[in-house]
Amino acid sequence: MQNSHSGVNQLGGVFVNGRPLPDSTRQKIVELAHSGARPCDISRILQVSNGCVSKILGRYYETGSIRPRAIGGSKPRVATPEVVSKIAQYKRECPSIFAWEIRDRLLSEGVCTNDNIPSVSSINRVLRNLASEKQQMGADGMYDKLRMLNGQTGSWGTRPGWYPGTSVPGQPTQDGCQQQEGGGENTNSISSNGEDSDEAQMRLQLKRKLQRNRTSFTQEQIEALEKEFERTHYPDVFARERLAAKIDLPEARIQVWFSNRRAKWRREEKLRNQRRQASNTPSHIPISSSFSTSVYQPIPQPTTPVSSFTSGSMLGRTDTALTNTYSALPPMPSFTMANNLPMQPPVPSQTSSYSCMLPTSPSVNGRSYDTYTPPHMQTHMNSQPMGTSGTTSTGLISPGVSVPVQVPGSEPDMSQYWPRLQ
């Protein structure tokens, strides 16, 4: 039975679970980093996980050691009161100082060594604690504590007292930064006198190289990059290397530039699409467009005044059976039934097929058609009795279509119309 579990990581490298990497692998990681390889490249070359490479390099940059820390136990506290007071002093002298600059000053002034120097995250935590204590304490208590930490007896009751030896409130920041720059020169002199001055200088240079600022491109470089971006948004590694040799930039910087440029292009394309949609959409909808001609068919113009009344309900007709019959029939052209047409008796099958359309009241044959006459024609229609054979009435077949029909004066039988409509 094995005491430890061995495995293979996602890159194909072998590791022992819970145990640190061998010293030979750690040394190779540092050597590759000094030669300029990126952590992701080191991870692929040595088949070590990216997190492990970053952790080893980060500890090497901070402490200069590649040895693993002790497994188990607690780390001794490195942010001692003396170190905290120095950090507060540096922050007062130059409020814009960075944590890694404070760390360098602690090393250069001999406050800490490589073994007990606090990390950048520890210094940031100390600065946050100082800021929170400043908010919790009152103004007087804060000034007393700062005077105690600074070891001075001057008056701290006013704002300019934060910067000793100065009279203009805006000047101390520059003086403090100048003092810090002077301390940086002392850093070089002190570290050069040490035993491991060369190694420390190499480590600091490598650290500065990794902690780079934003790349500033010249106009020629920007023009070359934009020209390549117009050709393709995704250049391959050969195109990037050719462009890197042409404009004297690292291939990694060119790759990052193209990634950022593609993101910018997507944002601009989104804005262009929004403007295009806004320009195509009308600002207001016309009133006429809300009524579609496919839904509402136009009603033909009436030929006679009587045809303006298109349904039985508008003429005072309360018989719903006839109203439904007229509205359900398709529109037909106007025609006239003459008196000489043969009077065919209704076929029983045809009569039964339209039995649902006729009223059940037996008085329908005896009703006159003056009910369908509009009010303004009552006088004219009353002067001509319906009993004469020459009287013409208008029957409504569908809305908007008038059918003048000659009705025999002897017997106005409704059943004569249905064979004609089939």
Rank of each mutant, 00 (worst) to 15 (best):
V53I: 07
I97Y: 02
S108F: 10
R69I: 04
I45C: 13
G13T: 02
V14W: 11
G51L: 03
N116K: 04
F15D: 02
C94T: 09
G7P: 15
R44T: 07
R26I: 01
N124W: 00
R59Y: 03
V84I: 12
C52M: 01
T63S: 13
D41W: 05
G72C: 01
E93W: 14
V48P: 05
N50H: 15
D23V: 09
Q10S: 09
Q89S: 10
N17F: 00
R77Y: 05
R77A: 02
N17V: 00
S4K: 07
N150W: 15
G73T: 00
D41M: 09
S122H: 04
Y61D: 15
L21P: 03
M148L: 08
M137F: 09
Y90D: 04
R105Q: 13
Y90W: 13
H5Y: 12
V16Y: 06
N17W: 00
V84K: 11
R77S: 08
S6Q: 07
I45V: 11
D115Y: 11
R26V: 01
L107P: 09
V111I: 14
S43H: 03
N3H: 09
L46H: 00
P118L: 13
V78S: 04
L57T: 00
R77T: 08
V111G: 12
I66E: 02
F15M: 02
V120I: 15
A70W: 05
T80K: 11
W100Y: 10
N116Y: 12
A131Q: 08
K28D: 07
I97C: 07
R59L: 14
W100R: 04
R128T: 04
R67V: 13
G7W: 15
V83R: 08
S121C: 05
N150Q: 15
V78D: 02
A139S: 10
K145L: 07
R44D: 04
A99R: 03
M142H: 06
S96K: 15
K86C: 07
N114I: 10
V111Y: 15
I123Y: 01
I123M: 04
Y60Q: 00
E101L: 13
E31C: 07
V53D: 01
S74V: 00
F98N: 04
T113Q: 12
E109K: 11
Q136T: 10
K55W: 03
V126M: 15
G13E: 02
W100A: 07
S43F: 02
S4V: 11
S65N: 11
L21F: 03
R26C: 01
V126E: 03
R103W: 04
N114R: 11
G64Q: 05
M148W: 09
C112V: 09
G18S: 01
K86T: 13
L32M: 09
L127Y: 13
R77N: 03
N114K: 08
K134Q: 08
T80S: 08
I123R: 04
D104N: 12
V48F: 01
I71A: 06
K75F: 05
L106T: 03
R69E: 04
L107E: 13
A37D: 05
G13I: 01
Q10E: 06
V16L: 09
S43L: 01
A131C: 09
R26F: 01
S49P: 00
R92W: 09
Q136K: 08
